[in-house]
Amino acid sequence: MLEQINVNPSSGEPIYRQLSEQIVRLIVGGQLEAEQVLPSVRQMAEHLSVNPMTVSRAVQQLVEQGWLERRRGQATRVANRETSDSTSSVQLLKPQVTELLAQAKQLGISQDELKKLIDACWL
């Protein structure tokens, strides 16, 4: 799982958020399955070479949001979520798409042009 995560400390985006968003994407995308054990905070911090407190904050947030669960004295696991869960992969991308649309509008790019651009970048 560690190989699928990377953070960019110089992006200006909070590291804890970069981390939590990627872990959520891995869960929703099915790369991380329910009950799967996560590496420890220490291991993640060492692998990413970031402050462990930052990793801890991301994990804590995901536990509070129900994506992960932590039982006393045990490793952190991916939570079992209801299949009727309203969060779909598509929903997760909505903020980025909204942002993309705003930028496209500022640039005067039409809907058709944007669709073509997405098609062209798809590969």
């Binding site: 070479s49 402050n51 407190m53």
Partner: peptide, 10 residues
């Protein structure tokens, strides 16, 4: 070295 600082500092 700001990139180190960004990683290491709380």
């Amino acid at each position: 070295i700001t990139s180190d600082l960004e990683r290491v500092a709380s």
